[in-house]
Structures are given as C-alpha cells and as structure tokens.
C-alpha cells in the first residue's frame, strides 16, 4: 500500500487508545505522531535506509542504445545458473535506462515458468511520471529470450516493468522442489515488515516514552504489516523466527487507487468516530454505522460505480497490469 494509507491507519490505530485523545486535548500530540510515524516506518526503513546497503551479486546496468533485450535476458539466465551452484540466494540488480533529464527507456522482464525461460522487451520511452512519450511506442520490438537451467517457482508477478529512478532486485534461491524460487525485491518486507519488529521498537522506546507509547507503536506498526499482507508479496511476519516472506492473500495490489483511497478514508472515519465518542458532552448525536454509511459506503461506492461505468471499455481499469500477451507473436532475436 502507499505510504499515506499506512500513515493514516497508524494514526487511526493510535486513536483507539483513550490516552492518545486525552493527551491531544491537553496539547500533547506525541501519540498521534507515533501512530503516523510507526505506521509508515517499515517502508521508511526499507526505501530510505536498507536498500542502499543491500549488496547484489550481479548488477545489470544497460547502456542506452547499446544493450539489447537479449543481453539482459542472457545475464538474468546466467544469474539463475549461478544460483544453481549456491546455497545462498543470488541477487540481481536491474538498473533503469536514463535517456535524458526526464526520459527513461522502459523495459519489461517476464519469467515464463511453463516454458522455463526469461523474456525481455523494450517498451516506450517514458517520462518521470511513467507516462509514455508519444511516438516512442515500439510496434513489434525485439524480444530477448534465454532458457533457464531449472524450473522456476514464482512467488510474485511474473512480469516487471523497469523504468524510472531505481530498478528492481530479483532474488533466486534453490528450493526443495529441485527448482529455483524467484523473489521480487528480496530486500523489501524482509526484517522490517515483521510483527516482531513492532514489539522490538516498542521495547526499545519503552524506558523513554512509557508503556502507553509502546502500545501505540505496536498497534501502528502491526497495522502496516497486516495491511501489506492483503497484497501479493507478503511479509516476513515473525523475523527472526521466520526466514522468508509469507505469501500475501492476493486481495489487492499496492499501487491500486481504490484500496489505497478506501484505507485512507476509512482511517479518517475511524479517527473521527473515536474523537466523537471521546467528547464529554457531544453536541450532535451520530452513530458508528451512520458515519460509515454516510461518510464512507455511500460516497466511495457512488464514486466506484461511476468510475466503473466510465471506464467500462478500458482494458486496464481497476489496477495496473503488464500486458505481455502479444509477446508470443513478436520476432525473437
């Protein structure tokens, strides 16, 4: 999920504790701040700290107008072959291809588990907003293909776009089924996205901030981890007791607009409800279901229905997907 969704749910979780509201009424925003900060912290740890120190075995840094899709496919396949000889995970870093100040050459990497191969294809040039620059869409661009030396078990999306800023990391590790497990962004949602880390941080700050703050920290941090579990990638929930990410429940994708917005909005409604019921003498009489229905279900549902109707003919309506169906017809090189 997006940062703001985690942030808002962290604050919402904090408002369930009466001391959060009591302190805020007296001018102390500490618990509110802790809720938001620890709600977003797992991603902050990964994206602002850990990823810069994460070491890779292979760096694929394509040179603009020189490197071909086949070069990239070959190097990925070589990485998988390397992983066959190792017990540890082989980490491959794919760099983006920057063509100018605001231009990036997009390319897509697809793993075909059935045919046991990796395919790479260059897409359009995109700007930093990931919007294709008109006229740069390749009609039937070359597809690089390389055979993989073993069966591949895919735990995340089989296709990944590489375009702006930082490229993805792929991890390959031998599994118990005589094959290789593919891990997308192995540095993400590893130790940082564990329920146990929330407890760790709360214990760390307990002597300084007290048990009330510790409870807020656990609640906000756990909210983040559990929300992420609704997606595809999942998290390593009980690090260091568990070693790998538990599969997500595949309900939503992290970049989808509607689940993100719904989470933020629901969090705001819950905050409002908690603040409302904490009033000593409320001036207005409203109930929880009234707030949820009039403030949530009705407007969000109406918006969703109208959007559904307006985008009924759009192929990618709902969430972003990578369409690789036409690759089979493309010319191989």
């Amino acid at each position: 999920m997006k940062g703001i969704a985690h942030f808002a749910s962290g604050v919402a979780a904090a408002t369930f504790f009466p001391w959060t509201l009591a302190a805020a009424q007296e001018g102390n925003p500490l618990y509110f701040i802790l809720g938001g900060a620890f709600g977003i912290l797992p991603d902050t740890l990964d994206f602002k700290f850990y990823r810069f120190f994460y070491k890779h075995d292979i760096y694929i840094e394509p040179v603009p107008n020189e490197t071909t899709p086949q070069d990239i496919a070959d190097r990925i396949a070589a990485g998988v072959a390397l992983a066959m000889d190792r017990e540890k995970m082989v980490r491959i870093k794919l760099s983006t291809i920057r063509l100018g100040a605001d231009y990036w050459q997009q390319y897509t990497v697809k793993f075909d588990a059935e045919k046991q191969q990796v395919m790479v294809k260059f897409g359009p040039v995109v700007n930093t907003g990931q919007v294709p620059v008109p006229g740069t869409e390749p009609e039937k661009g070359a597809v690089g293909r390389a055979a993989l030396p073993c069966p591949l078990h895919i735990t995340y999306d089989a296709s990944s776009n590489v375009d702006i800023f930082d490229g993805p990391t792929f991890g390959f590790k031998k599994d118990n089924q005589n094959g290789m497990t593919f891990h997308f962004l192995p540095w993400h949602r590893e130790w940082s996205h564990a329920l146990t880390m929330g407890v760790f941080f709360s214990l760390l700050l307990l002597p300084f901030l007290g048990w009330r703050a510790a409870l807020v920290i656990v609640a906000a941090y756990s909210a983040h981890v559990l929300e992420d579990q609704l997606g595809f990638m999942g998290s390593n929930l009980f690090f260091p007791f568990t070693k790998s990410r538990a599969q997500g429940v595949h309900i939503m994708r992290s970049g989808d607009s509607l689940p993100n917005f719904t989470t933020v909005w629901l969090s705001c409604l819950l905050m409002f409800w908690n603040m409302y019921r904490f009033q000593a003498a409320p001036l207005h009489a409203i109930g929880f279901f009234q707030i949820i229905f009039w403030g949530g279900i009705l407007p969000v549902g109406f918006f969703w229905l109208v959007m559904k109707w307006l985008t009924r003919n759009s192929k990618t309506a709902g969430h972003e997907t990578i369409d690789t169906s036409e690759w089979e017809e493309s010319v191989s090189v």
């Binding site: 940062g3 703001i4 942030f7 604050v11 509201l21 805020a24 009424q25 001018g27 925003p29 509110f32 701040i33 938001g36 900060a37 977003i40 902050t44 994206f47 602002k48 810069f52 840094e61 760099s95 983006t96 800023f165 930082d166 490229g167 409002f272 603040m275 409302y276 009033q279 409320p282 001036l283 207005h284």
Partner: peptide, 30 residues
C-alpha cells in the same frame, strides 16, 4: 468543528510528520 476543534494541534503535527516522512530520495539509484 465541534468534534475536531480539540485536536487541531495534533492534526497539524500529524501533517508535519507526514510531509517530512513522505519525501522520496531522488538519488542513490546506481
């Protein structure tokens, strides 16, 4: 207004926290 007034200060702090924590690093890509 009646519900949120006592929390305006805390809400502003929450917004500040989000502004400061949500900025994305622009370098360190290669």
């Amino acid at each position: 207004q009646s519900v949120l007034r006592p929390y305006m200060g805390a809400i502003i702090w929450v917004i500040i926290t989000f502004i400061l924590m949500s900025e994305w690093p622009k370098g360190g890509n290669t």
